[in-house]
Amino acid sequence: MTFVTTSADQAVAGIRDGSMVLIGGFGMAGMPVTLIDALIRQGAKDLTVVSNNAGNGYTGLAALLAKERVRKIICSYPRQIDSWVFNELYREKKIELEVVPQGTLAERMRAGGAGIGAFYCPTGVGTPLADGKEIRTIDGVDYVLELPIKGDVALVGAYLGDPRGNLVFRKTARNFGPVMATAASTTIAEVHGMLPLGGLDPEVIVTPGIYVDRILDLQRSPLEASEAVS
């Protein structure tokens, strides 16, 4: 059963210190800013965060980092023109960084959500990011063994949801959301609006509700929302 709420604080209740938290978004597109703000209020600390970037500006993930609640970040591209908060924490050695190629990051979570124990991936062979990892040659091609990532919690930004937890996304804001939704024990999605049961065309649902535990309904322009799927 998916729990639907309009309270961001309810949506993030119970996230424990030390959790592995998967946070969707590519830059700000698809970033679940309302859920992250609620997580900051909720107070969980000593977190490991998995996200493509390490925060932009001073909002969203950057704000969580600024509160020093994150012990380690696993991401592909921390250094950006506006990643001031991360840069400073990293230089002061207040945050641990694991850099993972972007596709490997996605695939490790896909594996985590799909019950795959590990996989051989060609990306990164012969580079420093394969140091210390098992290399295996299959049909003349070298691969590096990559382990799955499983989160305790995933926070994702979607477009519309329904009471079953089914989700659709919008344009390139989809990015990591559907993969992260599969890879966490508790998946929490913030959506612009909700449609009644049956309101989402089953043919276009991107994330089936089986993966979604809680939905935060942001109640943004419901008319526009329903037009978007008709």
Binding site: S76, Y77, R79, Q80, N87, Y90, V99, P101, T104
Partner: peptide
């Protein structure tokens, strides 16, 4: 220097 690979290796 802060390492950042993005999708370059992929």
């Amino acid at each position: 220097a802060i390492p950042a690979v993005g999708g370059a290796m992929d």
